[in-house]
Amino acid sequence: MLQVQDYLLFVFLIIAFLIDIKHHKIPNWLSLSGMLVGILYHLVTNGLDGLIFSFFGLLVAGAIFMLLYLFKAIGAGDVKLFAAIGAIVGVQLVLYMMMYSIIVAGLIAIVILLFTKTFLQKLTSAFFHIIGSILSKDLQGLEEFKTTKSTRFPFMYAVLPAVAITYYYSFWAV
């Protein structure tokens, strides 16, 4: 049975999705609003236990995705987005959502690579940039490659299916 927090999450994600698709950025005001709404909702409904529930969700999601951000796998907006999701749904659900979003993002990346005409060219170019960066011990060439030649897509394309998969397996597939 869906609860108020689930509907808060759905509204938050729809707004984030629309903004990310249009502007390729998740604004700080939206992420901070999601964090604040999650914390306040759980504080009001469950008191100190709710505050701890929400805070740990925010902390765990933010910390794990911060590691991915440090490795330049995702953007800073995605870190804050998942911190807000964690504040709304707590640790358990946000961990599932994170796992499924990474899997879905990998599948999307494979599909993009397979259906673009330049798959072999990009793969070869990426390989040589990685080898060049390792041999020269300079990551500047790899950074330049990522920003100019690599194929990117908004991570929200993976987040919405991941949330749907999480809810399906957590609530309806029992």
Rank of each mutant, 00 (worst) to 15 (best):
H129S: 08
L135S: 12
A109E: 06
T147F: 01
L93Y: 11
I108E: 10
A73I: 12
K80W: 01
L67Y: 09
K117A: 06
Q92R: 14
S54M: 03
F71N: 11
A76Y: 05
I134A: 13
M66W: 14
S136D: 10
V37M: 09
L81T: 10
T118R: 14
S33E: 09
K149Y: 09
M99T: 13
L139T: 12
Y69Q: 11
Y96L: 13
V159A: 11
T166W: 01
F56D: 00
Q121Y: 11
M98K: 02
I88Y: 01
L107F: 11
I88T: 03
D138Q: 05
T151V: 14
K149D: 13
V94P: 04
G38W: 00
Q92L: 09
A109G: 15
L93A: 14
F155S: 07
L120W: 06
V91P: 03
Y167S: 04
L95F: 08
L123H: 08
L139F: 13
L40Y: 05
L70F: 15
L48H: 11
V44Y: 13
K122E: 12
F71H: 10
F128D: 08
G132S: 10
V37N: 05
L113H: 12
S33P: 09
V60L: 11
K117M: 05
Y100A: 06
I165C: 04
K117W: 03
L95Q: 05
Q121W: 06
F56L: 15
G38A: 01
T166I: 03
K146T: 07
K72S: 15
Y41D: 01
F153H: 04
M35N: 09
G77Q: 08
L48P: 00
K117P: 00
A162F: 07
F56I: 10
I165Q: 01
I131V: 15
L160W: 03
V91Q: 02
N46C: 00
